[in-house]
């Protein structure tokens, strides 16, 4: 009996190893190819040879000059971080009220948050663009191409999502501490600042990270609402690709180097915060 159980375990271990190996190959092959191409001289990329004759580390140097990569990364960081902070702070207030109180319209508010997350971005971009154009002419200010406009429009998807995450996070924090403080005569603001906020920090960090990543990954809004000097990394990298569409050369080596360099920090953030973030991923984080 015991022997048969052990045998069964061994068979399973073999199957598991085979399965994991197959997955690993399929996951790593495209990434490995990206690494290889990022080290291939431009002249050899289209030649058909999978491995270059010599390693072109230069791609990792020249990528900073072909497009203004540093500025694009800076723009992406600024816009994504601002979106994350705004979404988290604004959502925090609404989430606290929704998680702690019963009021007429509460269900409607939650329903709206869920519904807003399913609205396609392009559906909101179009009227937002029309509204922004009108505001521009009416107020005689420049709005398209400014950081402010991009950050505000990113709130269209970051805010419902952030509120949703925080409502479920705050609802899971026990209410007793707050009630005790209220009984002792603390005001609502004091309670929020001294009791709720410290307890909510992990949830707020996750919310910030997710809003940041949503903004970081956006191409749709950025491609319409940014200009040459405010464009984000995603739009900048796309400039490499579209060079080929207009008949120019695509510097695949540099492009892959830049893609890897820009994907790496995100991957590291994810892997470091894995434990906290997985809850958000399965809790309805929408990738678009």
């Amino acid at each position: 009996m015991i022997a048969s159980v052990r045998r069964r375990r061994q068979v399973w271990a073999v199957w598991r190893a085979v399965g994991i190996l197959a997955f690993a190959c399929l996951i790593l092959a495209p990434l490995g190819y990206m690494v290889v191409v990022s080290l291939t001289p431009d002249s050899q990329v289209g030649g058909g040879a999978i491995f270059p004759t010599h390693v072109a580390w230069g791609n990792y140097v020249r990528m900073w000059g072909t497009i203004n990569l540093a500025r694009d990364i800076g723009n992406s960081l600024l816009i994504s971080a601002s979106t994350g902070v705004m979404a988290t702070l604004v959502a925090m207030g609404a989430a606290y009220v929704t998680a702690r109180f019963r009021f007429p319209g509460r269900r409607f508010f939650l329903l709206s948050l869920a519904t807003f997350q399913t609205i396609p971005g392009v559906m909101l971009l179009l009227p937002l663009f029309a509204i922004i154009v009108v505001l521009q002419t009416a107020l005689r200010v420049t709005l398209i191409g400014t950081y402010f406009t991009v950050i505000m429009t990113y709130l269209t998807f970051a805010l419902p999502f952030a509120s949703w995450l925080l409502v479920s996070y705050l609802a899971a924090i026990p209410v007793e501490l707050e009630e005790a403080a209220l009984v002792d005569g603390a005001g609502r603001l004091q309670v929020v600042r001294h009791i709720v906020l410290p307890l909510a920090v992990p949830g707020m960090v996750v919310t910030f990270v997710f809003s940041f990543l949503l903004a970081w990954g956006d191409v749709l809004f950025a491609s319409v609402l940014t200009n040459q000097s405010t464009r984000t990394l995603a739009v900048g990298l796309q400039a490499y690709v579209s060079a080929g569409e207009t008949g120019g050369d695509v510097y695949w080596g540099q492009l892959m180097a830049a893609s890897l360099a820009s994907g790496l920090p995100i991957v590291v953030i994810f892997l470091l915060l894995q434990r906290y973030i997985i809850g958000g991923l399965t809790g309805g984080a929408l990738k678009g």
Binding site: P127, A130, S163, G187
Partner: peptide, 28 residues
């Protein structure tokens, strides 16, 4: 005081959602 709902905490989110999502939806 404990039962009083701090509505002011909800105002920014509701305002932004109305301006950024609901209004554009209507325009659309």
């Amino acid at each position: 005081a404990r039962r009083r709902i701090p509505w002011w905490m909800m105002v920014p989110a509701v305002f932004l959602l109305a301006v950024l999502v609901v209004a554009p939806f209507g325009v659309s």
